[in-house]
Design a protein around this nucleic acid. Sequence first.
DNA 1: TGTTGCACTTAGCACCGTAGAG
DNA 2: CTCTACGGTGCTAAGTGCAACA
Length: 795
Amino acid sequence: MSGDREHRESQVNCGSKGNDSHKHKDKHREHKHKDHKKDRGHERSKHNSEHKEHSEKKHKDKLKHSDGSDKHKDKEKRREDKVKLSHTDKPKKEKENGYVRHSSPGIKSEPEEDNGFHPVSKHKASKRELDDEEFDYKPKKVKTEHDKKEKKRKHEYEEEDEEEEDIKPKKTKDRSAKDGKKNKKEEEEKWKWSCWINWFMNTIASLPSDFSGILTNRRLQARLLVSASSILSRRWEEERYTDGSKWRFLEHKGPVFAPPYEPMPDKVKFFYDGKPMKLSAPAEEVATFFAKMLDHEYTTKDIFRKNFLKDWRKEMTPEEKSKITDLNKCGFSEMSSYFKAQSEARKQMTKEEKQKIKEENERILQEYGFCIMDKHKERIGNFRIEPPGLFRGRGDHPKMGMLKRRIRPQDIIINCSKDSKIPKPPTGTKWKEVRHDNKVTWLASWTENIQGSIKYIMLNPSSRIKGEKDWQKYETARRLKKCVDRIRNQYREDWKSKEMRIRQRAVALYFIDKLALRAGNEKEEGETADTVGCCSLRVEHIKLYPKMDEQEFVVEFDFLGKDSIRYYNKIPVEKRVFKNLQLFLENKQPEDDLFDRLNTSILNKHLQELMDGLTAKVFRTYNASITLQQQLKQLTCGDDSDPAKILSYNRANRAVAILCNHQRAPPKTFEKSMQNLQTKIDDKQSQLSTARKQLKSAKSDYKASHDEKSQKTVELKRKAVQRIEEQLMKLQMQATDREENKQIALGTSKLNYLDPRISVAWSKKYGIPIEKIYNKTQREKFAWAIDMAEKDFEF
DNA sequence: TGTTGCACTTAGCACCGTAGAG
DNA sequence: CTCTACGGTGCTAAGTGCAACA
């Protein structure tokens, strides 16, 4: 299994990308925006551009094949892919660290104007070319917003308080947990309360036995609870620190290390050049990493093999090193089959054995999987250190196959509070460092050897610290909603600017807004796969078509984005954008940057001026969430059955996933499972017709006899028909849903881009149990929203 | 003004347990 | 009761963005 999925269309072939040349941002310095010569496309359209942008769209469209028509001559890099998604336009955005502002509940403000589609103004295109001069050039307003000054980001935390403030310390009792309704503030409090009560109970339970003995008296417990709660609740209220600190108290047990290497049994041999050879333990361990991946396709890739051999040799003894020089002569097959047998054996284990393992895991989880942060027991996200192995980058990664070394205690930095119990390193070892930095949220970190980046152990998404951040993120996106029109107007103005850098910035922002592209930070060449985002797009990634089919000014995007997922899309843009793009392309080579006067920091600096806390990412969040909200409004019909409503929800979700280009490899078993489902549907259909017949005959029996028994039969049959109808419909819904979902991944947008309050409100409004749209993990992550949002919540 | 380091979010995939079909 | 498809989960790579530094 394995193997194939990676070749999903997205992959590029290793092409050369190498050309280092880029970076000549400066060289093109001279472009005067004025002369727009170029019009490569012939006809200087005299027509008014009517942009029909978004025309098609509809959550339907999605995938199609790429035709691959003209390729660039440039680097041979060609992607083989075949499939791609063509999105419709629709913007989306994302956000992220936002600082919260008021979370005022309602805020409806704009009705819905923005579904992301910009008005596509009807500006008549008037003149040809960049008619810039026509419009008066305004210095752009930039500064305008008042908001900017009022809130400095430092106050981020204080600001959130607005919401909290009304939460008065409230009455102790947990009573709040019950009686419902209360406004959101109270709801939120309830959430906190349950949290801390939890913590309290846990603490009591963990007290030394002599102490907890005293506490067995329930009355005493209750009293303690009350008085402690009044103290602590105040503290909880203060928890929004204003000095940038993230916590006051942090205690944990440190990470769990990967199990030590267990040498192969002697009977399992490694062969070199056909002859058995005993390897030293370190060399053998690395060999097993390779053996385990043998049937994965990247063990056949040259770079992978080359990197592997190089790193492997570093682990060898001098003798081994001198002997083993050619990977092709290495025989890993015995090792490989040994591992296969082992995993088979694991599957064959008895229930009891499996149960035992499960219990052991649970024990470790209980011991190491939680920490105490500011009086709350919180789940840790990844408390296990990554085991050693071979690095598998995504896409065409230059470092694939390198050895990811084993992490030892002396590589780990522990972070916790001074007054906590410091975690103990395994016997005989020491931590690299123990620090007490409450300006960060991580509990432990280490430096990874492939890219030299730092890895962290942090809390689970259900934790307060992640939840609040998430909430802030959506609040920032909601603030953007309030000023997005102004921002859009501004960047449209900027398309006419006299300065190249302003124009580039404006066009890039337009893409980010309309197409939900990622920002596109610069990456170090040769260190990672060659992928791009908006600001790092190169000339070779877009093609301009003055006219295509019925549409004018079409831009075709074809590039690899994050995780080497291909982004392919053809969209009509406004004439002015088109002309600007032509201008940006002048005198450039395919591997030159499209936006040579722009990078993410310039762009974000600009965005920051437009709205406090605004960055490129916020657009993705904003557009994703607003799209969901609109689609839900549009697709959900109150009279539908529950499965139909859920299908609508999934469709709305899907529209967002398409917007954000969240793809997945079609499940390997897709065709088959689809077929199975179809068989079921057919069966169900015939069942239904049988049931109907039976009902009919029961009815006529009843008519004839009018006895009680036959009446009952009629009822029974009627129910049966109804039940089967429902089942059938459910199956059909399922089939549709699955088909539409073939290569779209809904999870990412659901988890990261869609304000959960929209979903919660929807589920309340239509009486769909929240469990139908969020599984347990998701409900935990979104607990804040589930408590907070009512059915009238508006993003 | 560009570069680097750091912290934190976002991403797809592999694996595994289990519910439901047979 | 066994098999298998599916969803959930864990894992960890790959982004973003800020700030310190050069």
